[in-house]
């Protein structure tokens, strides 16, 4: 469960001054559902998700993730979150096994427990063949699988994906999409940011359109289509964003 209330993040930039990267955003994401954050470049998706993963501290507003407040108990929040982004890379000089084991240990799991979980996850993701090779020799697909295993090792209740298919080929992207669905089917709360309309249509139970740091529309894909009288989601998006005016 994720509950976000009036979440705001203001960056102080030397050149651009105060940037309201996230501006009074409120929403709820429920277990067993995928909440999609749809927005253009610079809309504030990454910042919102980093706030939820407690990598950044909010300037104002609150959010609770898996029942913990992001500002007051960031460590507990992180213990219940799996965060996967284009910017969360692997340690190139470690093997996949070492990488995953390290994150298991960082999550406070006992070695035997890590071993058991790793065996299960590796079998699920078909990783056995490259488990003991160094990550810097991996193909993008292998890297993605290892990253997924890293986010899953502590079996978090909440999964946060920030444009996880960015730069991936069709097959690898499909594997990710399948994996995100599986997370939902296992009852996890999933939040998924993207700017790709087709992914939203395929995946998301609820969509929040974010633009200029503000959440300017929310609903199921069908609801948004009906409300704006357009079948093509891209047209819907342009209408919503256009109504807000460009920042």
């Amino acid at each position: 469960m994720i509950e976000v209330h009036q979440l705001t993040k203001i960056f102080q930039d030397r050149k651009r001054g105060a940037i309201r990267a996230v501006d009074g955003v409120s929403f709820r994401a429920a277990p067993g559902r995928i909440y999609g954050l749809l927005g253009a470049n610079g809309a504030g998706k990454t910042t919102t998700l980093r706030l939820l993963a407690t990598l950044l501290r909010p300037t104002a507003g609150t959010a609770t993730v898996a029942g913990f407040d992001v500002a007051r108990e960031p460590e507990k929040v992180r213990a219940h979150v799996g965060f996967l982004a284009a910017s969360t890379a692997l340690y190139g000089r470690l093997t996949a096994r070492e990488m995953i084991t390290y994150f298991g240990a960082l999550n406070g799991l006992a070695p035997a427990e890590i071993k058991a979980r790793l065996r299960r996850i590796a079998a699920e993701l078909d990783m056995d063949e490259f488990l003991d090779r160094r990550c810097d020799q991996f193909s993008t697909g292998m890297k993605q699988k290892t990253s997924i295993a890293r986010t899953l090792i502590h079996d978090p209740a909440v999964m946060i994906f920030d444009e996880p298919t960015l730069g991936l080929d069709v097959m690898t992207a499909r594997a990710i999409v399948r994996f995100v669905r599986e997370c939902r089917d296992r009852g996890k709360t999933v939040i998924y940011s993207t700017h790709v309309m087709s992914e939203v249509e395929k995946l998301c139970d609820t969509v929040g359109v974010i633009h200029g740091g503000r959440l300017c529309a929310e609903g199921t894909v069908a609801e948004l289509r009906a409300k704006h009288g357009e079948q093509d989601l891209e047209e819907v998006f342009v209408k919503i964003v256009g109504a807000e005016g460009s920042p």
Binding site: A53, L55, E75, R78, S87, T88, A89, L106
Partner: peptide, 14 residues
Amino acid sequence: ERGTMETLLCSPVA
């Protein structure tokens, strides 16, 4: 630079 810092910061370790 390699993008592993953010990965590490995602862990619950203080």
